[in-house]
Design a protein around this nucleic acid. Structure first.
Lengths: 145, 145
DNA sequence: CTAATGTCTCTAGTTACTATAGCTTCAAGA
DNA sequence: TCTTGAAGCTATAGTAACTAGAGACATTAG
């Protein structure tokens, strides 16, 4: 049995984050010691590692919740998990494309900055006038990796 | 003079967002009509368009606040604006690299999913075991475009 | 003049945490 | 055994950048 600190260290998840995951129902409520401290099993560590890894890959907690409930039911079809992963991939691809455009625009901005006074600053000028842009950078539908 | 709705339409910024920007001091408090409705000048539209464009390029409101105060002082050196833009570029580059790794990993996951049952699902399996990853995808320092 | 639309303020919700305060429990050293 | 310091507990509030809702007032078209 692991204390919350050990669990966090093992899964590289901060302690308050673990408590938060419990609070929102992503982790089951942990057993408690005589002194009311949380105690975790190896299974809890696996589950937390799963969450952490999925977060690293950019899945939302909502998506992770779905993936977890799928994985709790090993005889189900794989299609649900596949769909979630494909959706995530599509979103990543969208964001990649957009970030590519942003990068191009920012580079143009920065390269053209002659380092003089604000009055002639290319950065400020470009920001003030979208028509000076070459690429079609546009807002993302959503965000946060 | 524009009402808030016209201003929003002109700059493609939602009305509550404009009020929010005013609330946090990014836009000056607007003049008011006899009936207490906000009225905006052409200059306010320019400023809002600047903000919107910078947001599109991923600048934080904090960075935009700095850029605006720089642009309010046209005789200053350009270095500050240049530094902010370069920092933004660096962040975009970091995120691009990371998203590239994520994409590779997600593609691997999705391609290997045979479409069977959860018990054999490659997606679930990879999420549960980081050592199955090939690329070095890791958490971003920060986020939100 | 009335009805529809626009605007007003204020509060609270969103995502995924992070930080703080003030307490209790635990493990190790003297 | 006592004590101290780290680790744990709860609860609340804060972060970014908005978005949504309620209920009241203003403006405009017909």
């Amino acid at each position: 049995m692991l204390t919350i600190g050990k669990l966090g260290a093992a899964a590289r998840v901060k302690v308050p984050t673990i408590r938060y995951y419990e609070q929102i129902g992503l982790l089951l409520e942990a057993e408690r010691s005589a002194g009311n401290q949380r105690l975790y099993s190896r299974a809890a560590l696996d589950r937390l590692a799963f969450i952490r890894h999925a977060r690293d890959l950019g899945f939302s907690l909502e998506a992770i919740r779905d993936l977890l409930s799928l994985s709790d039911d090993p005889d189900q079809s794989c299609a649900g998990a596949d769909a979630i992963a494909r959706a995530q991939l599509a979103e990543v691809e969208t964001r990649l494309a957009r970030l590519g455009a942003l990068k191009a625009e920012l580079e143009r901005m920065v390269v053209q900055c002659a380092g003089g006074r604000i009055a002639n600053c290319r950065v400020i000028e470009v920001l003030g006038d979208h028509s000076l842009c070459t690429t079609d950078h546009h807002p993302e539908g959503k965000a946060t990796p």
